[in-house]
């Protein structure tokens, strides 16, 4: 039960935690903090905590949120304040780097490699790693109409969502979305040969 990006928080300070959701209701729960709070689409719930001991705190989603509800860990790293400030600086640099990626031209291979990673973390929950979806609930991307149709419609769907599919405009960067769309359009039996660049996504926003 580990995560790729733990939440980093300073110790000895009152921190405010806001929860919301994009798809279904989840609940944010770290037992050592002594509370849980639902994360609900359309709502922003707030809570606070003061963590006294530095260390790693673990928890998981506590509201049934679908097939992978049992696999939704939370890892919270409480660190001294100076370490926290250093982490914030580091994150700012990383974000700036990611933003700069939006302007450059990517090759198909670069996009597909990055896209596969994002697909696994973000899209495979519903559409499945093999792109086959779940019949009756989540459409297949392998051979799917939108994926093999005009690229502009595909970008619009990912940015804005549709029906059960959440909007990813606020969650993924231009480069992320360009990469994952390029991956989807050129994987499994889909061979459109389309390359979607971050600037195309930026233009569609």
């Amino acid at each position: 039960m580990n995560v790729d990006k733990p939440i980093v928080l300073p110790v000895g300070k009152k921190v405010r935690l806001l929860t919301t959701a994009n798809d279904v209701i989840h609940a944010w729960w770290v037992p050592a903090l002594g509370w849980k709070r639902d994360a609900i689409p359309g709502f922003i719930n707030d809570n606070w905590a003061i963590i006294n001991e530095p260390g790693t705190y673990r928890g998981q989603c506590a509201e049934l949120c679908g097939k992978d509800h049992g696999f939704m860990p939370i890892v919270l790293k409480a660190v001294p304040e100076d370490e926290y400030n250093a982490w914030v600086e580091e994150m700012k640099v990383a974000q700036a780097e990611a933003a700069s990626g939006a302007d450059k031209e990517w090759t198909m291979d670069e996009l597909k490699t990055k896209g596969e990673e994002i697909y696994k973390n973000t899209c495979a929950v519903c559409h499945q790693a093999n792109g086959k979806g779940v019949p009756g609930t989540f459409p297949a991307l392998d051979g799917g109409a939108i994926v093999n149709g005009p690229a502009g419609e595909h970008v619009k769907q990912v940015l804005g969502g549709k029906n059960l599919m959440p909007a990813f405009a606020g969650q993924l960067s231009d480069a992320d979305i360009a990469a994952v769309i390029t991956y989807e359009r050129n994987s499994w039996s889909n061979q459109t040969g389309d390359v979607v660049q971050p600037k195309d996504v930026k233009a569609a926003r």
Binding site: V24, I25, P41, L64, G66, K67, V134, P135, L164
Partner: peptide, 22 residues
Amino acid sequence: MKGGAPAGGWTMYPPLTLQTGD
């Protein structure tokens, strides 16, 4: 059925239960 039996809990909370298939 396609999409399986209801799996959103007996409390049927949306939006999750709206993901139920047929």
